[in-house]
Protein backbone atom coordinates (compact mmCIF):
# COMPACT_ATOMS: atom_id res chain seq x y z
CA UNK A 1 0.00 0.00 0.00
CA UNK A 2 1.38 3.42 -0.96
CA UNK A 3 0.60 6.57 0.99
CA UNK A 4 -0.39 8.53 -2.17
CA UNK A 5 1.02 11.95 -1.24
CA UNK A 6 0.25 14.46 -3.99
CA UNK A 7 0.50 17.79 -2.16
CA UNK A 8 1.78 19.48 0.99
CA UNK A 9 -1.70 19.18 2.53
CA UNK A 10 -1.58 15.42 1.96
CA UNK A 11 1.88 15.24 3.55
CA UNK A 12 0.75 17.21 6.63
CA UNK A 13 -2.35 15.02 6.83
CA UNK A 14 -0.41 11.75 6.63
CA UNK A 15 2.04 13.04 9.26
CA UNK A 16 -0.88 14.02 11.56
CA UNK A 17 -2.46 10.61 10.98
CA UNK A 18 0.85 8.95 11.97
CA UNK A 19 1.10 10.98 15.20
CA UNK A 20 -2.57 10.45 16.10
CA UNK A 21 -2.28 6.69 15.48
CA UNK A 22 0.70 6.51 17.86
CA UNK A 23 -1.19 8.58 20.47
CA UNK A 24 -4.16 6.19 20.35
CA UNK A 25 -1.90 3.10 20.36
CA UNK A 26 -0.29 4.36 23.58
CA UNK A 27 -3.48 3.13 25.29
CA UNK A 28 -2.02 -0.39 25.11
CA UNK A 29 0.29 0.74 27.94
CA UNK A 30 -2.73 1.92 29.95
CA UNK A 31 -4.73 5.14 30.23
CA UNK A 32 -2.28 8.04 29.80
CA UNK A 33 -2.23 11.78 28.90
CA UNK A 34 -1.29 11.10 25.27
CA UNK A 35 -4.34 8.89 24.73
CA UNK A 36 -6.57 11.45 26.48
CA UNK A 37 -5.21 14.15 24.16
CA UNK A 38 -6.15 12.06 21.10
CA UNK A 39 -9.57 11.33 22.62
CA UNK A 40 -10.27 15.04 23.19
CA UNK A 41 -9.19 15.91 19.63
CA UNK A 42 -11.48 13.15 18.39
CA UNK A 43 -14.48 14.40 20.41
CA UNK A 44 -13.94 17.99 19.27
CA UNK A 45 -13.53 17.09 15.60
CA UNK A 46 -16.45 14.63 15.64
CA UNK A 47 -18.79 17.15 17.28
CA UNK A 48 -17.75 19.87 14.83
CA UNK A 49 -18.08 17.52 11.85
CA UNK A 50 -21.54 16.35 12.99
CA UNK A 51 -22.63 19.98 13.43
CA UNK A 52 -21.40 20.94 9.93
CA UNK A 53 -23.11 17.94 8.29
CA UNK A 54 -26.35 18.64 10.20
CA UNK A 55 -26.38 22.30 9.23
CA UNK A 56 -25.56 21.62 5.57
CA UNK A 57 -27.81 18.58 5.01
CA UNK A 58 -30.78 19.33 7.27
CA UNK A 59 -31.06 22.85 8.66
CA UNK A 60 -30.18 24.85 5.56
CA UNK A 61 -32.36 22.92 3.04
CA UNK A 62 -35.25 22.10 5.42
CA UNK A 63 -35.49 25.24 7.56
CA UNK A 64 -33.42 28.25 6.53
CA UNK A 65 -33.74 28.27 2.70
CA UNK A 66 -37.52 27.60 2.67
CA UNK A 67 -37.82 30.44 5.17
CA UNK A 68 -35.93 32.89 2.92
CA UNK A 69 -36.64 31.69 -0.62
CA UNK A 70 -39.70 29.43 -0.24
CA UNK A 71 -43.26 30.14 -1.30
CA UNK A 72 -45.90 31.41 1.12
CA UNK A 73 -46.84 27.96 2.45
CA UNK A 74 -43.22 26.87 2.86
CA UNK A 75 -42.35 30.10 4.70
CA UNK A 76 -45.21 29.67 7.20
CA UNK A 77 -44.30 26.01 7.68
CA UNK A 78 -40.66 26.98 8.30
CA UNK A 79 -41.71 29.64 10.81
CA UNK A 80 -43.79 26.94 12.49
CA UNK A 81 -40.67 24.77 12.76
CA UNK A 82 -38.40 27.67 13.75
CA UNK A 83 -40.39 28.56 16.89
CA UNK A 84 -40.03 25.15 18.64
CA UNK A 85 -36.43 25.02 17.38
CA UNK A 86 -35.69 28.28 19.21
CA UNK A 87 -37.44 26.92 22.29
CA UNK A 88 -34.96 24.03 22.26
CA UNK A 89 -32.10 26.49 22.75
CA UNK A 90 -33.83 27.56 25.97
CA UNK A 91 -32.83 24.14 27.38
CA UNK A 92 -29.29 25.43 27.95
CA UNK A 93 -30.46 28.72 29.51
CA UNK A 94 -32.01 29.45 32.94
CA UNK A 95 -35.48 29.41 31.31
CA UNK A 96 -35.12 25.78 30.30
CA UNK A 97 -38.76 24.96 31.08
CA UNK A 98 -39.66 26.80 27.86
CA UNK A 99 -37.87 24.07 25.97
CA UNK A 100 -40.17 21.37 27.36
CA UNK A 101 -42.83 21.90 24.67
CA UNK A 102 -40.33 21.56 21.85
CA UNK A 103 -38.85 18.54 23.63
CA UNK A 104 -42.37 17.06 23.93
CA UNK A 105 -42.86 17.34 20.15
CA UNK A 106 -39.48 15.67 19.56
CA UNK A 107 -40.12 12.91 22.09
CA UNK A 108 -43.68 12.27 20.84
CA UNK A 109 -42.53 12.00 17.21
CA UNK A 110 -39.51 9.89 18.21
CA UNK A 111 -41.59 7.49 20.32
CA UNK A 112 -44.20 7.03 17.58
CA UNK A 113 -41.51 6.54 14.92
CA UNK A 114 -39.76 4.01 17.19
CA UNK A 115 -43.03 2.08 17.77
CA UNK A 116 -43.93 2.15 14.07
CA UNK A 117 -40.39 1.18 13.07
CA UNK A 118 -40.25 -1.65 15.61
CA UNK A 119 -43.56 -3.09 14.37
CA UNK A 120 -43.01 -2.73 10.62
CA UNK A 121 -39.21 -3.09 10.61
CA UNK A 122 -38.49 -5.78 13.21
CA UNK A 123 -41.52 -7.47 14.77
CA UNK A 124 -43.37 -8.41 11.55
CA UNK A 125 -40.34 -9.27 9.34
CA UNK A 126 -38.65 -11.38 12.05
CA UNK A 127 -41.90 -13.21 12.89
CA UNK A 128 -42.55 -13.87 9.19
CA UNK A 129 -38.92 -15.02 8.79
CA UNK A 130 -39.36 -17.49 11.66
CA UNK A 131 -42.65 -18.79 10.21
CA UNK A 132 -41.08 -19.11 6.74
CA UNK A 133 -38.24 -21.23 8.12
CA UNK A 134 -40.74 -24.08 8.68
CA UNK A 135 -42.71 -23.39 5.50
CA UNK A 136 -41.37 -25.79 2.80
CA UNK A 137 -42.74 -23.67 -0.05
CA UNK A 138 -40.70 -20.68 1.19
CA UNK A 139 -37.35 -22.51 1.15
CA UNK A 140 -38.08 -25.26 -1.39
CA UNK A 141 -36.10 -27.68 0.76
CA UNK A 142 -37.98 -30.55 2.43
CA UNK A 143 -35.03 -32.65 3.59
CA UNK A 144 -34.84 -33.74 7.25
CA UNK A 145 -31.76 -31.49 7.72
CA UNK A 146 -33.80 -28.45 6.75
CA UNK A 147 -36.57 -29.41 9.18
CA UNK A 148 -33.98 -29.90 11.92
CA UNK A 149 -32.38 -26.51 11.21
CA UNK A 150 -35.80 -24.83 11.16
CA UNK A 151 -36.62 -26.48 14.48
CA UNK A 152 -33.35 -25.21 15.99
CA UNK A 153 -34.08 -21.64 14.79
CA UNK A 154 -37.59 -21.73 16.27
CA UNK A 155 -36.35 -23.26 19.52
CA UNK A 156 -33.66 -20.56 19.69
CA UNK A 157 -36.12 -17.73 19.06
CA UNK A 158 -38.71 -18.94 21.58
CA UNK A 159 -36.26 -19.98 24.31
CA UNK A 160 -34.36 -16.67 24.02
CA UNK A 161 -37.61 -14.74 24.37
CA UNK A 162 -38.65 -16.90 27.34
CA UNK A 163 -35.27 -16.35 29.03
CA UNK A 164 -36.16 -12.65 29.33
CA UNK A 165 -39.53 -13.39 30.94
CA UNK A 166 -39.04 -12.46 34.58
CA UNK A 167 -42.68 -12.51 35.71
CA UNK A 168 -43.15 -14.37 39.00
CA UNK A 169 -46.10 -15.24 41.23
CA UNK A 170 -45.32 -14.31 44.80
CA UNK A 171 -46.67 -16.38 47.67
CA UNK A 172 -46.50 -15.24 51.30
CA UNK A 173 -43.46 -16.60 53.10
CA UNK A 174 -41.77 -17.84 49.93
CA UNK A 175 -39.04 -16.36 47.79
CA UNK A 176 -40.58 -15.35 44.43
CA UNK A 177 -39.40 -17.77 41.76
CA UNK A 178 -40.08 -18.30 38.08
CA UNK A 179 -42.07 -21.35 36.96
CA UNK A 180 -39.90 -24.47 36.68
CA UNK A 181 -40.57 -24.99 32.94
CA UNK A 182 -39.77 -21.33 32.18
CA UNK A 183 -36.53 -21.73 34.12
CA UNK A 184 -35.64 -24.85 32.09
CA UNK A 185 -36.46 -23.30 28.70
CA UNK A 186 -34.61 -20.17 29.84
CA UNK A 187 -31.48 -22.29 30.32
CA UNK A 188 -31.73 -23.43 26.67
CA UNK A 189 -32.25 -19.76 25.74
CA UNK A 190 -29.02 -18.88 27.55
CA UNK A 191 -27.14 -21.30 25.29
CA UNK A 192 -28.56 -19.63 22.18
CA UNK A 193 -27.76 -16.16 23.56
CA UNK A 194 -24.17 -17.28 24.29
CA UNK A 195 -23.93 -18.62 20.71
CA UNK A 196 -25.26 -15.36 19.22
CA UNK A 197 -22.95 -13.22 21.34
CA UNK A 198 -20.05 -15.54 20.49
CA UNK A 199 -20.69 -15.01 16.77
CA UNK A 200 -21.02 -11.23 17.31
CA UNK A 201 -17.82 -11.18 19.38
CA UNK A 202 -15.94 -13.08 16.67
CA UNK A 203 -17.28 -10.68 14.00
CA UNK A 204 -16.27 -7.60 15.97
CA UNK A 205 -12.89 -9.13 16.76
CA UNK A 206 -12.26 -9.83 13.07
CA UNK A 207 -13.21 -6.22 12.21
CA UNK A 208 -10.90 -4.92 14.95
CA UNK A 209 -8.12 -7.19 13.71
CA UNK A 210 -8.58 -5.84 10.16
CA UNK A 211 -8.32 -2.28 11.52
CA UNK A 212 -5.17 -3.23 13.48
CA UNK A 213 -3.55 -4.71 10.37
CA UNK A 214 -4.47 -1.59 8.35
CA UNK A 215 -2.99 0.74 10.99
CA UNK A 216 0.21 -1.28 11.40
CA UNK A 217 0.54 -1.36 7.62
CA UNK A 218 0.07 2.45 7.55
CA UNK A 219 2.70 2.98 10.27
CA UNK A 220 5.13 0.68 8.46
CA UNK A 221 4.62 2.44 5.12
CA UNK A 222 5.02 5.86 6.74
CA UNK A 223 8.30 4.86 8.35
CA UNK A 224 9.51 3.22 5.12
CA UNK A 225 8.49 6.00 2.71
CA UNK A 226 8.77 9.19 4.77
CA UNK A 227 10.36 8.51 8.14
CA UNK A 228 13.62 7.11 6.77
CA UNK A 229 13.91 10.00 4.26
CA UNK A 230 13.37 12.53 7.04
CA UNK A 231 16.01 10.81 9.16
CA UNK A 232 18.46 10.77 6.24
CA UNK A 233 17.91 14.50 5.56
CA UNK A 234 18.63 15.30 9.25
Amino acid sequence: MNLAIASLADFVGVFLGFILTLLVFSYVLGDNPLFRLAAHIFIGVSAGYAAVITIYNVLLPQLIFPLIYGGEGETYFSIGMLIPSLFLFAKVTPIKRAGNWAMAILVGIGAAAAVGGAITGTLLPQTIGTINSIEPSATGDTTWANWLNAGIIILGTISTLIYFHFGVRSKPGRIPKRFAFIEKIGKIGQLFIATTFGVLFAGIYLAALTALIERISFLWNFIKEIGLQLLASV
Binding site: V115, A118, Q126, G156, T160, L161, G189, F192, T196
Partner: peptide, 28 residues
Amino acid sequence: VHIPAVGGARGLLLGIALGTITTGLRII
Protein backbone atom coordinates in the same frame (compact mmCIF):
# COMPACT_ATOMS: atom_id res chain seq x y z
CA VAL B 1 -23.79 -18.34 11.91
CA HIS B 2 -26.90 -19.30 9.90
CA ILE B 3 -28.80 -21.57 12.31
CA PRO B 4 -28.35 -21.28 16.12
CA ALA B 5 -27.03 -17.69 15.99
CA VAL B 6 -30.02 -16.67 13.84
CA GLY B 7 -32.39 -18.26 16.38
CA GLY B 8 -30.78 -16.39 19.27
CA ALA B 9 -30.53 -13.13 17.30
CA ARG B 10 -34.22 -13.35 16.33
CA GLY B 11 -35.16 -13.82 19.97
CA LEU B 12 -33.03 -10.84 20.98
CA LEU B 13 -34.36 -8.65 18.15
CA LEU B 14 -37.97 -9.55 18.95
CA GLY B 15 -37.29 -8.79 22.62
CA ILE B 16 -35.75 -5.42 21.75
CA ALA B 17 -38.70 -4.62 19.45
CA LEU B 18 -41.21 -5.55 22.17
CA GLY B 19 -39.29 -3.39 24.68
CA THR B 20 -39.21 -0.47 22.22
CA ILE B 21 -42.96 -0.78 21.59
CA THR B 22 -43.71 -0.86 25.33
CA THR B 23 -41.52 2.17 26.08
CA GLY B 24 -42.87 4.09 23.07
CA LEU B 25 -46.49 3.38 24.00
CA ARG B 26 -45.83 4.46 27.59
CA ILE B 27 -44.60 7.82 26.24
CA ILE B 28 -47.51 8.17 23.79
